[in-house]
């Protein structure tokens, strides 16, 4: 197994592991924005630059997707690597000056503000990392949003910039967005969740017992289709919030209410989990 010498610390990693894997193992922090362990490497933000020592020359590479295939020597704290990461962050801050998350990350890197003016327009601080699009495609499987345009006109949008027919209002995109561009908003009056800025809305289910908000209806439907268990009892539980669900089970167990066959089956399934 190859050994990565990273800032003097030596760690052994699997073949084809990345430099980022090695850094995590060695306990060395490298800032990232477009990296997420659940999806394929994007390597779009270029923030995780490190310097590879190839003996007679040095090369800047992205840590998140550089595959380790033999023993290598990497420097995270070299002057070139630090300068490269600073430069990239300064460009990002110039593009997206209002993102608190971005500014926080910059501060952690020791960077305050940017020497560059804002010359490109970002949609609410979007840095075009691509996490939202790839999560929707690979993890959720809906591809409700994607990139359109090219270069500085590149934006994340729904097809034809119209309301998406595919969005299920799961909020995964908002969850992974590293700069706070995508926000989930709950509309009290209509009982809907909105994925902003894509304007997709979905009705939220409410707990039949206590009225607390659950997931969106399309997410519920989507999971039901994927799970393919056709039990009436399962469906009953599906419309309860976690608190009420536990209460119902507890009631059935403690009060000795006779369980019918279906209840027992459901209990068994739950126990097997």
């Amino acid at each position: 197994m190859p050994i990565v010498n990273i800032d003097g610390r030596k760690v052994e990693v699997q073949m084809e592991a990345t430099i980022l894997d090695a850094a995590q193992k060695a306990g060395i922090w490298i800032p990232t924005l477009c990296f997420h362990s659940s999806i394929s490497h994007l390597a779009t933000c270029r923030l995780c630059m490190v310097e590879l020592d190839r003996g007679d020359w040095k090369q800047l590479v992205t840590a998140c997707n550089y595959p380790v295939r033999r023993d290598i020597v990497v420097s995270v704290s070299s002057e070139n690597a630090v300068k490269a990461r600073r430069g990239v962050m300064e460009l990002l801050l110039a593009r997206s000056p209002e993102s608190e998350q971005l500014k926080e990350l910059a501060r952690r890197m020791g960077i305050e503000g940017s020497p560059y003016p804002n010359v490109t327009e970002s949609l609410r601080n979007c840095i075009l990392c691509g996490l939202c699009t790839i999560v929707c495609e690979e993890v959720i499987g809906k591809s409700a949003i994607g990139f359109s345009g090219r270069g500085v006109d590149r934006v994340v949008t729904t097809p034809f910039r119209q309301l998406s027919e595919d969005c299920i209002g799961c909020g995964a995109c908002a969850y992974v967005c590293p700069v706070g561009t995508i926000q989930l908003r709950v509309h009290e009056d209509t009982g809907e969740i909105e994925v902003s800025p894509f304007k997709s809305r979905a009705k939220l289910l409410v707990c039949e017992e206590c009225g607390r908000r659950l997931v969106s209806e399309p997410v519920n439907k989507y999971i039901m289709e994927k799970v393919k268990i056709d039990l009436a009892e399962f469906r009953k539980y599906a419309k309860l919030c976690s608190v009420c669900r536990r209460k119902k089970s507890a009631n059935i167990l403690s009060l000795g209410t006779p369980m019918n066959d279906d209840d027992r089956k459901t209990e068994n399934i739950k126990c097997q989990k």
């Binding site: 699009t133 591809s143 994607g146 359109s148």
Partner: peptide
Amino acid sequence: IPITRIYGVATF
């Protein structure tokens, strides 16, 4: 394939 992908290609 998702329409999103085709829209991406059409605008690229």
